[in-house]
Amino acid sequence: MSTLSEAVGPAEPNDTPPRGLWRQGLTVFCENRLALVGLGLFVLLAGVCFLGPLVYQTDQVHTDLTAVYRAPGEQGHLLGTDGVGYDQLGRLMLGGQTSIIVGLAAGVLATIVGTLLGAIAGFFGGWVDAAVMRVVDAMMSIPSLFLFMLLAAIVTPSAPMLILIIGAFAWLGPARLVRGEALTLRSREYVQAMRGMGGTGGRAVRRHIIPNAIGTVIVNATFQVADAILYVAYLSFLGLGIPPPAANWGGMLSDGLADTYSGHWWLLYPPGIAIILIVLAFNFIGDGLRDAFEVRLRRR
């Protein structure tokens, strides 16, 4: 029964307890088939990357120059080998771990930093807001990829370093979004009431602004993760990724391009397809979460 029909129809006795907000959100999310497909894709890819090596064990540390460019299926290499003898399927799993871990961590880091700064700027306003937002404006005026490349060229890339580099610049978007939410939330009655009873600004931000903006934050976080995975791929593609024997899908795609003309298709397609699938998965999940947090789509 929809909210509208309930509002205009006669009141009926209802013995079932009202469902919680999270459960309602879950129901809406599950109604979005693409979101479910995205979730399934992510679970599948993460499962293959993190659990696959337990089943399909390969040496991803030592090269083997006696086994380079084996075709898929040859000598037990399901997806062949690359130019220094690494098993390609094993490498995809290893590369996926890096891409997912760095993507998730950088996305979460950017979301946390952006949410905090955005909430503080929006709630307190004045010079705090002006300072934070001018920094955001200034940093947004420089293409992110250029900054990432610059930093990655200066420091030796590693997984933690990539997380920091990407997270350090990807918080700008969440900060703007949450700041906008905070601007509207700070004038709500319950916030005013809390302040009137002596509540501090910190408490307002912690207990009211951030919790009420959580929908925006979570939806945005999924896209942050997708963006971060792509940034890792971009940097690795440009030769600024984590050096071997570590791997990630962007670097594998870049290496595969060097072998394009040699007919070694298994070095090109799999990492490219994996990047597409993981980014699509997070986009679909994000769309589903947006629906789930959209109050108007919920049944009451």
């Binding site: 978007g173 896209f223 997708a226 963006d227 792509l230 791929a233 971009y234 986009n283 994000g286």
Partner: peptide, 11 residues
Amino acid sequence: SRFPGRALRGA
């Protein structure tokens, strides 16, 4: 969001 379109473009 400024991200979905960009991420999709990346894909």
